[in-house]
Design a protein around this nucleic acid. Sequence first.
DNA 1: ATATCATTTTACGTAAGCGTAAGGTATAGA
DNA 2: TCTATACCTTACGCTTACGTAAAATGATAT
Lengths: 143, 143
Amino acid sequence: MAAQRKTVEEVVKILGVTPRTLHYYEEMGLIPACERTAGGHRLYDEETMEKLAHILRLKEYLGYSLHEIRTVIDAEDELERLRVTYHSSVDDKERRLALTAFSQEVEKILATIDDKMERLATMRTTFAERLGRAQDLLAGKKV
Amino acid sequence: MAAQRKTVEEVVKILGVTPRTLHYYEEMGLIPACERTAGGHRLYDEETMEKLAHILRLKEYLGYSLHEIRTVIDAEDELERLRVTYHSSVDDKERRLALTAFSQEVEKILATIDDKMERLATMRTTFAERLGRAQDLLAGKKV
DNA sequence: ATATCATTTTACGTAAGCGTAAGGTATAGA
DNA sequence: TCTATACCTTACGCTTACGTAAAATGATAT
């Protein structure tokens, strides 16, 4: 059961991006250079697909720039790198540093999310009220 | 008690934008050409301040482009225009059209907000879990 | 009155995030 | 094998949303 690799065509269909975007993210180092066919066509594995989805969420829902996203990804990658390497006491200091950096990044993200959710809730209330009034008027109610 | 007019300096301090942004929004027709001093310096009234805050919210928290924001504002302005004009039965058809257009815009916005809030909630959970695990590791817990 | 700082218009510049065209190669289906 | 797409790299182009510089004028404090 070899992991399913996806062609560019499949990826763009699933994620709603263009090939150019995939190339660009690869150029920027946001995703690793992926596997290729004998002829040089790209094949995306599941891990990269998840990274892409992760990037697109950070971009779309948190409004992060690709630069900010790289900062996040770097912290995540560093943590992962240390997770899979040999766990010696020598690594330990480095590991705590990575964990701390990662935690700080995630805390920033959580703060951003909380702030956004709060603002969105306020806006929702405001717009819902305005919609209600407009619909009352449409229904012919005296207001 | 004449309404307080604000200078550019005050506006940029309050809203956290630059003078260029104010000029640009005026150029784009997002805000009306405001009052001037005898010498031509701009003075912003409260109504425009609120419009600006409105624009910045749509931009920052919904990620709307200035073009999309204009669509929203146009619907709002059209509604307001009809609200303050003479309410004849001749206006009535036009008025219902404006109300419908406005309602549709607001419904779109509400859908956007609900979608965003849902996605943010999901992301929050994911990141909170990851933060928890990182902090457990930092605390020396076996995981 | 004068120095200082804020603001004006005009207009070219810029960064991010891709779009797009060109010219050539791969892959898949009949 | 042939044909129709899909994909490759390279590289210049483009849009949005302002930034920034210049040269002149207005506002304000002393």
